[in-house]
Design a protein around this nucleic acid. Structure first.
Lengths: 139, 139
DNA sequence: CTTAATTGTAACCGACACAATTACAATAAG
DNA sequence: CTTATTGTAATTGTGTCGGTTACAATTAAG
């Protein structure tokens, strides 16, 4: 299991998009948690980076809650991915033998490879919007 | 830490490519393990899928060992990645509430997204050969 | 045939990541 | 002041996985 945060964040945003379309104003983390089958604190933890990325807006206090910050047409999967996932998709072993020429240059070489992979991934995700996903799911 | 197998498998193949170029015939897992700073059994576990993918050839018994099966020019990073990594790069939460329309269609939708991501990744990796990596590392 | 060196593999261990929970402080509305 | 919310710190339970040990199977050499 690599990272469940991406799919869960996506699911949160899909729900917020629907609720927004239905005219709801704010949705509580309690409400989202029930929909996702989890607990409010976990939802709130996922919401923090989404809010920092400007994808949702959160409001504290009584009558607080969260709502989607933009039209689903203006939110790409790349933005969601980058907000939800903070680690790289691959990494090298640390304990490699530096006296071997391969081991010595391994770190920098592999960093370059991973960068290329990440870049390819992000380019792909950039072309997909939340609205595309809504359409595909017939929502 | 996502998956150290990709980088380690790559490192194994880089070593085997160099040893092959130096005229060595077979390299033992013991030998590789020392170069990588790990133990022979771990190396052998990584070699199995590489052998199944036809990237290396292993030989049992006394005087046994492993060698690279093809020219580094003919080995792509995609092949190495697919041999070394068997899990998907992302997955969905299992316990999603099916009574919610988003939750109900989440699984299939997300599967499609992950497939697209994997595909983009593989396309990128396909354009890079082991020889490219050797060149870049000045080996 | 025996011995030695290897791969193949099963079983296990320990550490760490991370989903999930609990609890409580901070905030804001009424 | 009370109540409902977000924010967040602390904790826990557990699954994953890198790594190790051990041993069977295999093969060459003497």
């Amino acid at each position: 299991m690599v990272d469940v945060r991406f799919s869960t964040s996506l699911q949160i945003l899909l729900n917020l998009a629907l609720r927004d379309r239905e005219g709801d104003d704010l949705v509580t983390s309690q409400d989202l948690a029930q929909t996702l089958g989890t607990n409010p604190a976990f939802v709130r933890k996922l919401l923090i980076p989404l809010a920092q990325a400007g994808l949702v807006e959160t409001f504290k206090g009584k009558t607080g809650g969260v709502k989607i910050a933009r039209s689903p047409k203006k939110i790409t999967l790349r933005e969601i991915y980058e907000a939800a996932v903070d680690k790289n998709i691959a990494c090298a072993r640390e304990t490699t033998n530096k006296s071997c020429p391969v081991g010595a240059s391994m770190k920098s070489v592999f960093t370059g490879i991973v960068d290329g992979m990440e870049s390819a991934l992000r380019t792909h995700l950039q072309s997909k919007t939340l609205q595309h996903v809504l359409n595909q799911a017939k929502l």
